[in-house]
């Protein structure tokens, strides 16, 4: 039984019902890491928001999202809140906006524990420091007493990851979690994410436009183009032997090191005519 299975999920927005996600099908097994790659505006984030129940009010959702035998598309807000942060959690792109600037980060993480289980303040504090320690925040007790702006970008993203892990969720959705970070910091955060996912044995839906990151972290990948999933499979296979021309173009443009310096870089249009009908 899949942990998460998305069947024919379509999302439309607004009065004129602009379709941004078109009959997407995906499944994530327990402990599996699935990368979701695509250009901006391809529907990656909308898919994640649909799974997390974070779509705005003007969105129309069709199809089905089943998580641990529960249908999410029809779930009421109250039940959904109970699920979010406990069974499934999310790591956002911009840690500064994901954290409340007026609250000490230790308290923010503590509240997340308190929402889903009854613990004493002391136990909560111990758990927060433990998880901060685990994500490589040295002097965990001091960091817990800091406000978000007092931390560096890398530290903030570690806090966000710690908060996503704090209730030992079964699924973590990461939306471009390292895009806002410097390369060396990104490498460290990625290693951390890798280790922590293995440690708690959580499944991960990893959204990124960076194929390098996905091939580093995920064993499987889905490629999304213009709201449609055009290809799914093991990462190594999809990236080495892409079946869909769009995937081939994406891989070729991403692989800048394979091109002789100064030579023309391949572009997606060399492989794929965007005007033609997309079929999965």
């Amino acid at each position: 039984m899949s942990l998460l299975s998305i069947t024919d999920l379509s999302v439309e927005f607004g009065h004129n019902r602009t379709r941004v996600l078109d009959q997407a099908c995906l499944s994530v097994e327990p402990g599996q890491r699935l990368g979701l790659v695509g250009a901006s505006g391809s529907g990656k984030t909308v898919l994640a928001s649909a799974v997390m129940g974070l779509l705005p009010d003007n969105a129309y959702v069709m199809g089905s999202v089943v998580f641990q035998d529960q249908e999410l598309t029809t779930m009421r807000d109250k039940e959904f809140s109970a699920l979010r942060g406990q069974k499934m959690s999310m790591v956002f792109q911009e840690p500064m906006t994901a954290l409340d600037p007026t609250m000490k980060v230790g308290r923010q993480a503590g509240e997340l524990i308190g929402l889903h289980q009854q613990t004493s303040p002391k136990a909560t504090r111990t758990r927060v420091e433990e998880i901060f320690d685990q994500v490589g925040l040295s002097h965990a007790s001091r960091i817990a007493e800091a406000y978000p702006h007092e931390l560096s970008g890398g530290q903030r993203q570690r806090v966000v990851i710690a908060m996503a892990l704090v209730n030992n969720p079964d699924l973590i959705i990461c939306d471009e979690p390292t895009t806002a970070l410097d390369a060396t910091v990104q490498a460290k955060v990625l290693t951390l994410l890798d280790e922590e996912l293995s440690r708690v044995n959580a499944a991960c839906l990893f959204i990124s436009h960076d194929l390098g990151l996905v091939s580093r972290l995920c064993e499987d990948v889905a490629v999304i183009y213009a709201g449609r999933i055009v290809e799914t499979g093991p990462t190594a296979k999809v990236f080495h032997d892409p079946q869909h021309p769009y995937t081939a173009g994406l891989v070729a443009t991403a692989n800048i090191d394979a091109v002789t310096p100064g030579e023309r870089l391949p572009v997606i249009e060399d492989f794929f005519d965007p005007s033609q009908e997309v079929r999965s």
């Binding site: 390369a183 990104q186 490498a187 194929l211 390098g212 990236f239 991403a254 692989n255």
Partner: peptide, 12 residues
Amino acid sequence: RELLNAVPRLDS
């Protein structure tokens, strides 16, 4: 060296 190693490669 650290900078060079930090970049995730798409090996093919």
